[in-house]
């Protein structure tokens, strides 16, 4: 009947099980709407999008200064610096085609301000095996206030397409007691 004109009196309120279902669906939509703001205040995992504009060259300079002040070693496989910043401090991670610098050592259950930015294209920040994912944009300093709650070695992989070497783009966060 949907392909023919409706009867003249088609505009009327729903009845019976249709009315019941619209009511149930509306309640469920309200529940889902409340969950997000509720989690924002009560939950521990939120993406607040805190960010500041930054020129890629300036960001690279901050990263270099950060590495110079906090370096504790070098990763033998990749020759990338390993840093161990103080709990509560600002931590800078630099994404560029096709690596993340530096390798970061964090303490369990300590809060850090993790800065993410890119020197060239858009990149992803995908922390494995936790499967936590954030976006990295050039020109934007994306700040995650992060508290590691488990120890071990956590690879970072890129999950935003960034050219032919994208699949080999990795980094690492190490969390110790």
């Amino acid at each position: 009947m949907s392909i023919y004109q409706p009867p003249a009196d088609w505009f009327k309120a729903p009845t019976g099980s249709e009315r019941t279902w619209v009511g149930i669906a509306l309640v469920w939509c309200i529940v889902m709407s409340i969950m997000m703001p509720l989690w924002h205040f009560k939950g521990k995992q939120n993406s607040s999008g805190e960010a500041y504009r930054v020129e890629p060259m300036d960001y690279a300079k901050r990263v270099m200064e950060f590495i110079a002040a906090n370096q504790v070693g070098v990763d033998e496989g990749t020759m990338r610096p390993i840093v161990a910043p103080a709990p509560g401090s600002d931590v800078y991670l630099q994404a560029q085609m096709w690596q993340y610098t530096p390798i970061i050592k964090l303490k369990l259950n300590q809060e850090y301000r993790l800065h993410l930015s890119s020197l060239d294209l858009q990149h992803g920040f995908s922390l494995q095996p936790l499967n936590m994912n954030f976006q990295i944009l050039p020109g934007w300093d994306h700040v995650l206030t992060i508290t590691p709650t488990s120890t071990g070695t956590f690879p970072i992989i890129c999950n935003e397409f960034c050219g032919i070497g994208h699949h080999g783009m990795t980094g690492q966060i190490i969390v110790e007691e």
């Binding site: 990763d75 496989g77 990749t78 390798i103 992803g124 995908s126 494995q128 095996p129 936790l130 499967n131 690879p155 970072i156 992989i157 890129c158 999950n159 935003e160 397409f161 070497g165 994208h166 699949h167 080999g168 783009m169 990795t170 980094g171 690492q172």
Partner: peptide, 20 residues
């Protein structure tokens, strides 16, 4: 994807990367 496998990605073995 719930294991973390990225979309738009050529090689889940990460092209021989040593970090992952």
């Amino acid at each position: 994807g719930s294991y973390g496998v990225p979309r738009r990605h050529w090689d889940v073995d990460m092209g021989g990367s040593t970090l992952f």
